[in-house]
Amino acid sequence: MEVEQLQRSFIEYTSGLFREGFLDGQFSQLQMLQDETNPDFVFEVVSLFFEDSDRLLHDLSLALDQQNVDFKKIDAHVHQFKGSSSSIGAQRVKTACIAFRSFCEEQNVEGCLGCLQQVKQEYLLVKTKLEALLRLEQQIVAAGGAIPTLNEFS
């Protein structure tokens, strides 16, 4: 594919992610922090987010599976998840975490289980989208092009 065509798809795809609320301005901040001296910054941070999220989702499933649910522990996990999703701009995951925490406060196991499913779903969705976006980035770089900047979203 032509570099310009790849760059156009990159812009369209990213705009879509912002429009549909998968990503917010914080992701633009990450993109702004990526430059020639740090060409893999977004990739590194997003990869850390994936690792973190997989671990947290696993821990949450275990914690909610106990006879006596430790809501304090669950809240600590969700708090972390909310923090990391907000740091990378995964807006819909963050929103799902906020709802999760209110059920935690109510000590509502059913509510928490429902939220866990929702958080998981939102996470898997944004993960797929981010992976596609990073692939596009790699293709652009491999074709010798520059990653388009998307200042209009910041």
């Binding site: 740090n38 910054f41 850390l48 972390q80 923090g83 990391s84 740091s87």
Partner: peptide, 15 residues
């Protein structure tokens, strides 16, 4: 304590 946030802050400050 968050590695993601340490990365982010480090980059922000170095910029």
């Amino acid at each position: 304590d968050s590695l993601i946030d340490r990365k982010l802050i480090e980059r922000l400050l170095k910029t």
